[in-house]
Design a protein around this nucleic acid. Structure first.
Lengths: 107, 107
DNA sequence: ACTTACGGTTAGTCATGACTTACGGAAGCG
DNA sequence: CGCTTCCGTAAGTCATGACTAACCGTAAGT
């Protein structure tokens, strides 16, 4: 259910801003954090989450880490949304996977 | 920034389940809550949030409230996602709107 | 080697929001 | 009319997670 994680991860406004700042191209952490209302470590944490969700890639370049968007990370979310437009095939496929696990009780 | 609210609202797994149960068609609250691991009031609260976000519609039928999906509520989110696929026009349009409001500091 | 820029990690704080229980109003049924 | 069903609202509890400050390692420049 990676479209679920994509939703969760992109729900936070600050994290979304971080993600959007990569739309125009790869950037080091410094450049992303510049001008943001939160501290640089906060941005680092958000990047970590984005990376774990497969929405972002990291590559090292000397002492800096260059982050960039991973479009494939958005693909499943896109398909999920599309499935609400009555595409019967996708709807069936997704519904089959999404039988609700009653796990929340076991907390 | 309604794609933002859509993301926030759909991020919660329980609320997403509620939303997905409407994919196959309009349903009263009872039917939605049946078999879910949370109480009926919880479902009501989720429906309220979904409705405020424009993702769901409500119509009264006697004593029951019938909820159904509002596809238009997903349209902007869909467009936002698409804008990451290099559609220059959409990307420009969306970026123009999304200059980060430094509101978080004022909490 | 010393220093400086870069950025990830940890610990601890605090606000947000998802949930339950209890309640209340509104419509159908006997 | 009671009685029941349907469902929204209120109050209060508790877990989650976003953030800062402090710290550490690493690369590059002098």
């Amino acid at each position: 259910m990676t479209y679920g994680s994509a939703l969760v991860v992109l729900a936070d406004p600050t994290r979304r801003e971080v993600f959007e700042r990569l739309r125009t191209g790869p950037r080091p952490v410094n450049a992303i954090a510049a001008g943001m209302p939160v501290s640089r470590p906060a941005v680092s944490q958000h990047l970590k989450v984005l990376k774990e969700a497969g929405l972002v890639e990291e590559r090292s370049e000397g002492v800096r880490r260059i982050y960039s968007v991973r479009r494939e990370g958005l693909a499943e979310l896109r398909a999920w949304i599309d499935s609400f437009w009555g595409d019967a095939l996708d709807a069936f496929k997704l519904e089959a996977e999404s039988s609700y696990q009653a796990k929340k009780r076991q907390r």
